[in-house]
Design a protein around this nucleic acid. Structure first.
Lengths: 234, 234
DNA sequence: CGCTATGTTGACTAACATCAATCGTCGTGG
DNA sequence: CCACGACGATTGATGTTAGTCAACATAGCG
């Protein structure tokens, strides 16, 4: 109780290999390309090889709510039927596409095919629920810190000094966390001032010097650690 | 674009009858009884016959985030494996429990068994995404009006004058909409003053005199209809 | 009949959205 | 190679909304 669940770090492509016996083909999407719309009928499952995908819905007044960012090794579009969210490429995306009919066929011959798909949807629901909880109960700084820690677990590509890079814009981050781009900018600056993250250039950062789980106990950030500290009680 | 999706009104028990060939048994939960916890392994699907169930996660600092309210005819716990949310009975609940292994078995003999389950999860994801979007982009009054309209579609039990009753407390509503109980109370009062809803006694209400789709154009509420009007452009 | 949970109302405050202006970077085309 | 334009990031000033704290009312339940 009271802890914030971080997704299991890193992609697990080995688990998804079971489905590779089904018919599949490579696809590539350019930046900001719409992969599928909300409400359209879908019979294709995707597995990301490279890049970052966002799932989103169109909110009121043309606003956009991003509900998930997906990274290599992850599956999306696993439930056949009407798409409950839209999918767009944040960066250039290389993915494998699987036809659902082929997966169903395969599932009848071999058990365990459906499991990665079910797990993917289960994870999506869990992370969505956590997202709502965090948006509602954490202040802007807390949400940003949570996002940075989450991203740090997800993104495996690091440069020589351990920096990772934001694949998405501040506006994307804001549309995910329920903030606007200005607040994202201010918040990241404040986290940097508090020693919780370090930035270099435009969009590279690592979590502050200490190990991840201690990040809230480092730094003398005064008011920042008030409700922020709750986030790191893993 | 820009519209708020309301869930398809009313329960559709006839669709779920396909799964009734699987092994199932009646269960009853008392008010506030925990049906399953988040993170525990689940091999049971439930179909509500009577009452109201909430799905929720425990947020930071002991706070609670409700992610869905479910009503008669609806299924929950459809994905086998680890529960991504907890489930609790809002009222006394009568439900049917189905063992997943029995459903899987049945699915191999007869097609279409999995569809109601998949649809249930698809609906859950869609409504969760809409919930996030509405929490982020609508002010308190807008969220409450959206909730009332949604409830009015869902709850089929009405008394002679068309009133329906809130099954859940103001705190529950607040934990769903990202508001606190005080704001819920104030907001409902303001909606009533604006003629958008009518209350009688503690928790009964109907949507204001006009047909539902015109509810935002009725009433002279001045500032209320500013961003509220967007909600009703169906 | 009292206790507890829930709902209501008021005053105050802080956090974040909004608007606006500026800067930096990248990509394109002359 | 440089000029231009577009997009994203940054910074500042200001206002509104809803959270918080507190007190009280009411209903439900034993």
């Amino acid at each position: 109780m009271g802890e914030v669940m971080l997704p299991k770090g890193g992609a697990m492509p080995e688990q998804s290999l079971i489905i590779d016996d089904a018919r599949h083909w490579p696809v590539r999407f350019r930046k900001n390309k719409i992969i599928f719309h909300v409400g359209e009928f879908g019979d294709t499952v995707y597995k990301i090889n490279k890049g970052c995908v966002r799932l989103q819905v169109n909110g009121v007044g043309g606003s956009r709510q991003i509900v998930a960012f997906l990274f290599p090794g992850e599956l999306f579009g696993c439930l056949p039927g009407v798409r409950s969210t839209a999918a767009e490429a944040v960066t250039i995306v290389d993915a494998e596409a699987y036809s659902i009919s082929s997966l169903i066929e395969l599932n009848e011959k071999k058990h365990g095919v459906a499991e990665p798909l079910i797990d993917a949807e289960s994870d999506l629901e869990a992370s969505l629920a956590q997202l709502v909880a965090n948006i509602v109960h954490l202040p802007a700084l807390g949400r940003l810190l949570w996002f940075c820690r989450w991203l740090y677990c997800k993104v495996r590509e690091r440069d020589i000094s351990g920096f990772i890079e934001f694949p998405m814009s501040h506006r994307d981050i804001g549309d995910y966390l329920g903030l606007n781009a200005e607040t994202v900018s201010r918040g990241l600056k404040e986290l940097e001032n508090g020693g919780l993250i370090t930035r270099r250039g435009r969009q590279a950062f690592i979590l502050g010097g200490a190990p991840i789980r201690d990040c809230a106990s480092t730094g003398g950030a005064t008011r920042t650690t008030k409700r922020l500290s709750v986030v790191s009680e893993t």
